[in-house]
Computed example of a mutant assay.
Amino acid sequence: MTPNRSTGFTPFFLAYGAKAVLPSDLDHDPPRVKVFDRDRAVKAQQDAIYLLEEAHETTVIRSACYQQTLRRYHERKIRGRILEVGDLILRRTQLTKDKHKLSSPWEGPYAVDEVI
């Protein structure tokens, strides 16, 4: 029911091409439910297919823009590091088999012997 930030649409709309009708909506008779007509619904469904294709194209464009924005933000926050001989570094633990959730995810410290 909540629109996705990256696409601008709800997942239900992207999957089915229509706004979701909740059971609570049926109890309170919203205008959308009151004016429902089966004959017009078939024609509206055909029209909705074209609108859904357009929404999918819009979603792809919005998603690409969102990913570019995230990439720019990430690149702004990342600082390049130049290691020198003698610096101390930590290495992320690769095996978590015998670890529990409070174990440190890092190994080390290790001293840099050679910069390649």
Rank of each mutant, 00 (worst) to 15 (best):
M1G: 12
R5Q: 14
S6I: 07
T7W: 04
T7Y: 05
G8F: 07
T10C: 01
F12H: 14
F13V: 04
F13I: 01
G17T: 02
V21R: 09
L22F: 10
H28A: 14
D29S: 14
P30A: 12
P30L: 15
P31V: 11
V33P: 08
V35K: 14
V35R: 15
R38C: 13
R40E: 12
A44G: 11
Q46P: 00
Q46T: 07
I49V: 14
Y50E: 05
L51Q: 08
L51D: 02
E53H: 06
E54R: 11
E54I: 05
H56Y: 00
T58G: 01
T59D: 03
T59L: 01
V60K: 12
A64L: 05
Y66L: 03
Q67D: 11
Q68K: 10
T69R: 14
T69Y: 04
Y73G: 06
R79F: 11
E84A: 14
V85D: 10
V85C: 10
I89L: 10
I89T: 10
I89E: 02
T93F: 00
L95K: 08
T96D: 08
T96C: 08
K99E: 03
K101H: 10
S103Q: 01
P105M: 01
E107L: 12
G108H: 06
A111W: 06
A111H: 03
E114T: 15
V115C: 13
I116T: 03
